[in-house]
Design a protein around this nucleic acid. Structure first.
Lengths: 237, 237
DNA sequence: AATATTATGTGAAAATTACAACAAATGTAA
DNA sequence: TTACATTTGTTGTAATTTTCACATAATATT
């Protein structure tokens, strides 16, 4: 239950320094997959907590999210000793720790560029708000969309991005425009001081090295499925 | 330019049998990451082709999508010899091959359950249609949504899923309902003969082993970003 | 108090994936 | 025709990630 991790400093893309027993900070790299699984564990723990479950084992987490128990323990071990041998993990505590590790112990204002159907869906997506994200600005350059109300938010012209981003302290931008505009929007985001970008357009975006960028590709997983269905039905190339 | 891959048969999740020079079929497993990158290469090739570019090297593909040239060649080598030494790859041909490998040389009818904002965005998503997917059915149980028109498609009650899925030859289902309904919808899809499921709800779904299921999680990548922004600003746990 | 049971944390082994280096093949220019 | 430049396909190597196995610690039981 004691936390051995005390200081976390960026070394490379996903490296942390972790305090070991001997008080020496050792550097270790955290696989990106580990961080993603942490999100999944975290949401599973939320569900357990909501159902009044107070203690959980690595095996139960593993069953719940579809990984191996060793994987769960290894993933958590990157960040500290959160469990009690012979007992398991305290749900509330572990949930708190995973949220803290993921940086979700604070509110994150987001800016979305693209107020089309996808942008609209993202704005109204409950999944974001329950995890501490809130949309602080929606932008578009299409005059039919500017001024439109989404929830209690008004779609603003893209030109106002820098100003609003600064005022609202936005560090993360979401690209939900069509492919041909994606790079242009990314450039504006970088110029406006965004430190991280989530790109929903199916194209590779170039940004400076110090900007974190990740893609959510709606089609890739679908094409993985058709690949698998394809080889299932035996076909010649 | 000659294709050595002749027969592809499912061995495990992503295994193919590939014909080597000696005419012997050897079994090799294809990393899922390779298949995902193939989707990305494929779309990059589409862009090149549209711009009238006829030849491309592994290095140019690598630069275009942000991986190493060796990775590109290795990925393609799982499926055959598509290039010419000293020259590179023929764009049109390689595009055709990648599409074929991904199973995108045919039309894929899809069924979406959930006609909320996300379901609506997916229905109208241009990215699907350009890759050979088309929505053949949209379903919901919310009476305010049933009967609503999305493009030239009408939202049908969930009860009609099995019937329409069969009539339209749908093998892939998309889950775009809220978390609490996701498993229930998955069960209906399995019962209706879906062979693959794409799940947009942030919860782990259980399906029989022979059903392919993949998740698109809108928040995970966002939380990866906050993790990285978190360690960038040095904080104690 | 001793023993049994449970479940974590971790170091070592195994498996997977990516990278690098180079021989082979192609095209080009002298 | 020969030498040179280019770029693939592939083999071996390195790095990463996952899995395994077990010592360790906490609790329960006799």
């Amino acid at each position: 239950m004691k936390i051995t991790t005390n200081v976390i400093i960026l070394q490379k893309a996903s490296s942390v320094k972790r305090k070991s027993a001997g008080e020496i900070l050792k550097t270790l790299r955290v696989p990106e997959a580990t961080v993603s699984r942490l999100s999944i564990y975290s949401r599973f723990l939320e569900r357990l907590d909501k159902n009044g479950i107070t203690t959980v084992s690595s095996g139960e987490i593993a069953d719940g999210v579809g990984v191996s128990p060793a994987q769960v323990r290894k993933d958590l071990a990157y960040f500290g000793d959160f469990g009690t041998r012979g007992v398991g993990y305290n749900v509330k505590d572990l949930l708190k720790y995973t949220l803290k590790i993921l940086g979700l112990d604070q509110e994150w204002p987001l800016a979305i560029v693209g107020a089309g159907n996808l942008g609209f869906a993202l704005c109204t997506n409950r999944g974001f708000s329950v995890r501490g994200f809130h949309i602080a600005g929606v932008f578009d350059n299409n005059s039919t969309r500017i001024g439109k109300q989404i929830g209690n938010l008004e779609v603003k012209p893209l030109a106002q991005f820098p100003e609003i981003a600064k005022k609202e302290n936005i560090r993360i931008g979401i690209i939900a425009v069509r492919t041909s505009l994606a790079q242009e929007v990314a450039d504006i985001m970088v110029k406006s001081g965004m430190q991280a970008i989530l790109n929903f357009s199916p194209v590779t975006i170039n940004v400076p090295e110090d900007i974190e960028i990740r893609n959510v590709d709606l089609s890739i997983k679908l094409e993985l499925l058709t690949f698998n269905l394809g080889i299932k039905t035996t076909q010649s190339l």
